[in-house]
Design a protein around this nucleic acid. Structure first.
Lengths: 205, 205
DNA sequence: ACAAAAAATGATCAACGATCAAAAAATATA
DNA sequence: TATATTTTTTGATCGTTGATCATTTTTTGT
């Protein structure tokens, strides 16, 4: 089955990641095994371990691709300069991505590195890229703040949306309530709070 | 090793869950295996499967105990009738629980039922108990709303705090920023939004 | 045509979740 | 007490997994 001449190293890794993506899309992380990836691309298990450090490495690279796809989905069209509309648009795109790629998105957070292992540096960099989108979207609302404060605020929004989508998708909130409705409520309150702050009413952060 | 006379069925299940809890506290869900639980309590693997349907069942029961412990931690002392203080107190207690039981808390969300399986009914009931605490805490702020709307709002708060703690604990937000600081920002904006709404300024939900 | 380098192979290992006939222990019946 | 019945425990067994690495195969360089 060996087909060395058919694929370069990069192509074979991409082939394996594509197969892994399809498996996760269909069955989630539980269905993902090294042997199955090997079988699906017509190679043997040893080859998988020649191209990936271990299964965790493969999963993290798959998650990296998912983060890239999320970034693409959030930047497909310009967000505009109106901050409220931009944030709502970002939220809408985020929700659409999670509902269109539920298992790939879930595996971003279902996966935890093994004891003593951490996430690679590029993982954090991809997250910062995504946070940057939020930060720039709401920048006009926080013009009087430092960039660190704007990033802090972006993190709060990012985390909250994550929590809403996460609990809704996992069925761990005892609700048939939609993530969209909850995200809308969240944004309404948050934007009201931001407006109140801009008007000098709210307490300082 | 069999010690049938030593423990009733309930005692033996509790023994196994205690052992499982200690394993998860030390090493997370990854370290939890049926064989290790059996060894730790001085029984053999077959006995574990006599008392638990499978490993997922054992994990879900452990998570059930963790939800109970979280409820206890959130209700140890009265919350008072002042809604803002009550919500801040709930948040503080929630954050303390997550930082004191990071792996047990993480396993609540790291675990996903296998294909076709769902969470047991009592899981949702325990979640509703916790949501009820949030709902009652903020009830005075939403006296003009229906209970469904108050529960909806409680879900938003619960999800957001979950997201903040979840991303912080898993290191998936590229930040050394503390969950406490983010939760504080979140509450400031949210409470400002609630106040603005109460004053008839904010848009409707 | 040959040698050197690179890559693919798959047998092998330890460990896992899960099963279930057999053994052991506790309880019920006489 | 002695025997039968029920309950519980056992651990060998199965199929599968992640991971390893000496061997084989293929490609590249000379």
């Amino acid at each position: 089955m060996g087909r060395r001449s058919d694929h370069s190293r990069e192509e074979l890794a991409a082939l394996a990641l594509d197969a892994a993506r399809k498996i996760v899309e269909l069955e989630g992380l539980r269905g993902l095994t090294a042997r199955r990836v090997a079988r699906d691309i017509g190679y043997t298990i040893g080859t998988i371990y020649n191209h990936f450090e271990n299964l965790d490495d493969l999963i993290m690279r798959l998650n990296g691709q998912t983060l890239d796809a999320l970034y693409t989905a959030l930047t497909q069209t310009p967000l505009g300069n109106e901050p409220v509309a931009a944030i709502r648009s970002l939220t809408e795109r985020y929700l659409r991505f999670t509902s269109q790629n539920p298992r790939l998105w879930a595996s971003l957070f279902e996966f935890h590195p093994s004891e003593g292992q951490g996430l690679p540096d590029w993982h954090g960099e991809k997250i910062l890229m995504l946070l940057g989108l939020v930060e720039r979207a709401l920048a006009p609302l926080l013009a009087h703040r430092t960039e660190a404060q704007r990033l802090h605020c972006a993190r709060v929004i990012w985390s909250s949306l994550h929590g809403i989508c996460s609990l809704e998708a996992s069925g761990k909130m005892a609700a048939t309530e939609s993530a969209a409705a909850m995200a809308d409520t969240f944004l309404n309150y948050l934007l009201a709070g931001l407006n109140a702050e801009a008007a000098g009413v709210a307490s300082t952060v």
